[in-house]
């Protein structure tokens, strides 16, 4: 699978505290927005709950409406978000939490629709908006980049 981003990080805080930082919109808003942006978030950690992130800054005001798919307390949160004008094409984010003594190992996995599966109209809408998303051709590009650099 190449249409996804995978990251892991060990945080020097107990798992309960890291979980808390995801547990409501006020907490999430403190860390989810990039520099020069502020966020307003509405997060309900239960299946079917909201995971809305409104980003305001640099002359933009954009809301990504998400829906929580799965919650395993202290272990895992899965949510999906899409765009109003591209129905049925979702970006699914999974965050896992694992206790490592007094620390927490966090993983983030974000899966995008395969680029080739989108219609040209959807590609035109999705492309500029994805903020650097590695879509279906990610591996091909890596492969090509390696060839080009040779």
């Amino acid at each position: 699978m190449t249409n996804e981003v995978n990251l892991s990080r060990e945080l020097d805080a107990p798992r309960e505290l890291v979980w808390e930082a995801f547990s409501n919109g006020a907490h999430v808003a403190k860390w989810i927005a990039p520099e020069q942006f502020r966020a307003e978030c509405s997060v309900e950690l239960r299946p079917g709950g909201r995971f809305d992130v409104r980003m305001i800054g640099m002359g933009m005001d954009h809301t990504a409406r998400g829906l929580v798919r799965e919650v395993v307390h202290l272990e895992r949160i899965v949510w999906a978000f899409g765009f109003d004008d591209i129905p049925g094409r979702e970006i699914v984010t999974t965050v896992t939490f694992a206790a490592r003594g007094a620390k927490t190992a966090l993983t983030v996995r974000q899966v995008f629709p395969a680029w080739e599966s989108l219609t040209p109209a959807e590609q035109a809408l999705m492309g500029p908006r994805m903020n650097g998303a590695p879509i279906g051709w990610g591996q091909s590009l890596d492969h090509l980049a390696a060839l080009v650099k040779r």
Partner: peptide, 9 residues
């Protein structure tokens, strides 16, 4: 995009 999540973390 990867950098976005790195910054977030």
């Amino acid at each position: 995009h990867k950098a976005t999540w790195e910054g977030r973390l």
